[in-house]
Amino acid sequence: MLLLIPGPVQTRPEVRAAMAVDIAPWDDDTQAELAALRERLLAIAGGVPGEHAVLPVTGAGHAVVEACLRSFVPPGGKVLIPLNGAYAQRMARLAREAGRAVVALEVPDTRPVGAAEVAAALAADPAIGHVGMVYSETGSGIVNDPEAVGAAVRAAGRRLVLDAVSAFGALPFRMDAHPECDALAFTTGKCLEGMPGIGMAVARTDRLLACAGRAGSWVLDLAAIHDHALRNGWGSHRFTPAVQVLHALGAALDLYDREGGQPARLARYAENARVLYEGALALGLTPYLERRHQGPIVVTVHQPPDPAFALRGFVAALKARGVLISNFFSTATPTFRVGCIGAVTPGEMGAAVAAMRDALDSLGVRRRAAA
């Protein structure tokens, strides 16, 4: 089965094999492995030892994003969130339910937010202390620009929390070039092509020390996680982690390095997305995004207006042909989405386009272009 969802992603056999072991989380060898993983992830994030720290949070990407918001935005503090996708909406909900005040910047889910829009919103409300932004929106496929937005945040003297859950490892970002960024959040099961189950934050240590006791949560407190590591060593973990996931991440990072790291991974994903986007057009389908706004992580396509088309029926027809995609959508209008990330090649993506053609033909879907 070819798994084409934007996470958890298709993985290599070496990664799956690394899960098939029993591991004691507190064993010396395991702790050495976690410490080494933190160093490798810090390097990918462009972090500086001593200035930045890698902090694991067992759970989905939402868990580590919530931990970032709780740890750095003060209770009752204002956070500006550009709302141009489902995951930005979720970020806003995480902030609100943590008792933070969300200032919504409404942006269509068909384009990135502009740095000038962020700058204007910050100038209009000096009480806003943070900007929370999703780097890659897997609902629609757009990619926001943390270079331009980060510069606007920095110029305004505010702070940034960046949700890079579906971006980290493929889309570039360096913590050492972004002093305005308090934390970068990501997970093991997306562009690093590991298994799902652990979120990671790369955070500024000076800001962590200044935010002690702010989270209002024992588990989702990055300052406490950092303090635990300082006192007990970088291989330690506050609570029992998804240790097999960490072990598999080591295997995934070996493959990541062998491929050529971030530039090579981005190049493969971008080619996957090109093959899919052009293939959808050739099938008479209408991509949700203009080509200039199309990111490399996921391609979203308008559902055909033909009455013979039903999303779950289409997903089932694709699955019968060896391709599995998401059976739901989260865009403003009905769509289906196909992930371009994971251990997938452009050749396999071409085969997926052929499977889409066969599935549409088998369902009798003739009208395919969006109205």
Rank of each mutant, 00 (worst) to 15 (best):
A116Q: 09
Q303D: 13
A24Q: 11
Q303S: 13
A156D: 09
I81H: 04
Y269R: 12
Q31M: 15
A116T: 05
A282N: 11
M1N: 14
A320F: 03
D28M: 13
H52S: 04
S140A: 12
V65Y: 08
L266G: 14
R214S: 10
A215R: 04
V64M: 07
L255N: 04
G139V: 03
A127F: 05
L222Q: 00
P8T: 09
C68D: 10
M19P: 11
Q89D: 14
A119V: 02
A203P: 01
A369Q: 13
R207W: 14
A177I: 13
A18M: 10
E106G: 04
G197R: 03
A36W: 06
R158T: 11
R100D: 02
V344R: 02
P287K: 07
G347Y: 02
T205Q: 01
W218T: 14
F173G: 00
D358Y: 10
S140D: 06
G233S: 06
L192Q: 04
R207T: 12
P334Y: 02
G313M: 08
A119Y: 00
E14R: 11
A201F: 06
A115M: 02
S326C: 15
V165C: 11
M19I: 10
P25N: 01
D254R: 07
V103C: 11
A121C: 00
G235N: 03
L37N: 01
V243P: 00
M133N: 08
M1I: 14
Y269A: 14
Q303E: 14
A152Q: 04
Y256M: 06
A167P: 07
A310N: 11
E147H: 09
L122E: 01
F309Q: 07
K319W: 12
A88I: 01
A115D: 08
G114T: 04
G194I: 06
G194D: 07
V64C: 07
S140P: 04
P346D: 07
P346C: 08
T205L: 00
C181I: 07
V107T: 02
R70Q: 09
M195K: 14
F186Y: 14
R274A: 15
P179A: 09
V131E: 05
S217K: 07
N144H: 14
E39S: 12
A43E: 15
R100F: 02
A98V: 04
S136A: 12
A252M: 02
L3C: 00
A148L: 08
A332V: 15
K319L: 12
S217T: 06
A317V: 01
N144L: 08
V118P: 00
A115Q: 01
F329D: 06
A177D: 15
L276C: 07
A210P: 05
V113G: 01
F168M: 06
D257L: 13
G197L: 09
E117L: 03
D125I: 01
N144R: 10
V202Y: 00
A343M: 11
H302A: 13
R158C: 06
R93T: 14
I23T: 04
E106F: 05
E51N: 10
A127Q: 10
P179W: 05
S330K: 12
G7E: 02
L80F: 02
R159E: 12
I44R: 08
M175K: 03
G313S: 09
A60E: 15
A155Y: 03
T240G: 12
L160S: 07
Y269Q: 13
L311D: 05
R154E: 15
E290H: 13
H62M: 12
V153H: 08
T333N: 09
A355L: 04
R154V: 08
R70I: 07
Y269L: 15
L41F: 06
P74C: 11
